[in-house]
């Protein structure tokens, strides 16, 4: 008979990623690079919001962008064409999120000399990206009006880890039953410290407030 032996492990599966993430955060801090992790569901306007934000900030900060998707490079090209800044595409090979190791690989592919702000546009998904720390300095997420105000109730982890929540597509509010006050209340139920900023990436309304939030956060982080 084969000998059977039990080896006790008692270790969270997220532990090794959390260690990687903390190391990466430290390295970035030493290099003076602020890493923003931007999350949302697909189609909520991450790329359009980024283009507006980058165009407001590119004279003040040196910015680089990593676009993560399962496939295609449309987002990276869109960012480059619309802002002229450095932008690369990361493919996750079917995975629904980025972890610290993948983020590190992305950063290694960028020209980081002089960069103050690196932005990671995570895979469009409200579940998995919230569970995997990317080593970022701050987390931002976008909830768009057509998705509905109840999302903080349905995806609690995502909203509890975000430092700022942008409510996008404010221009279509008259066509949807979306209660901004209620939505803000739900966000704060998950995370009392999260800042809520209503924006419209298409018209640019409110994006200046997000840009200012980023500038303030970078200043405080330094």
């Amino acid at each position: 008979m084969d000998e059977v032996k039990v080896i006790e492990i008692k270790k969270s599966v997220f532990e090794s990623n959390e260690k990687d993430a903390d190391n990466l955060r430290k390295e970035l801090k030493d290099k003076g690079i602020f890493l923003l992790n931007l999350m949302s569901s697909p189609g909520s306007g991450k790329t359009t919001t980024l283009i507006r934000t980058i165009n407001l900030l590119k004279d003040k900060l040196r910015i680089a962008v990593m676009e993560a998707d399962i496939d295609s490079d449309v987002d990276a090209i869109k960012i480059k064409d619309a802002t002229g800044i450095q932008s690369i595409q990361l493919h996750t090979g079917g995975m629904c999120h980025l972890d610290a190791e993948m983020t590190r690989q992305g950063l290694d592919a960028l020209e980081l000399e002089g960069v103050d702000l690196a932005i990671l546009e995570n895979v469009g998904n409200l579940i998995c990206p919230a569970e995997f720390d990317t080593g970022n300095s701050k987390n931002a997420m976008i909830l768009s009006v057509p998705e509905g105000e109840d999302k903080p109730l349905k995806y609690p982890l995502m909203f509890s880890i975000c430092d700022v929540v942008l409510i996008n597509k404010m221009d279509v509010m008259p066509y949807f039953d979306f209660n901004l006050e209620k939505c803000t209340e739900y966000v704060h139920m998950r995370n009392p410290k999260a800042k809520v900023i209503p924006i419209c990436a298409k018209t640019g309304e409110g994006v200046d407030k997000f840009a200012q939030w980023l500038l303030d956060e970078i200043e405080n982080w330094k």
């Binding site: 080896i7 270790k11 990623n17």
Partner: peptide, 27 residues
């Protein structure tokens, strides 16, 4: 998809423990 990512983490950790303990088969 979410579960697959978790599985890769489990495999990574189990492989490491197996290596540390000179194990060549996990039941």
């Amino acid at each position: 998809m979410h579960e697959l990512g978790i599985v890769f983490y489990i495999i990574r950790d189990v492989k490491e423990v197996a290596r540390e303990n000179n194990v060549d088969k996990v039941k």
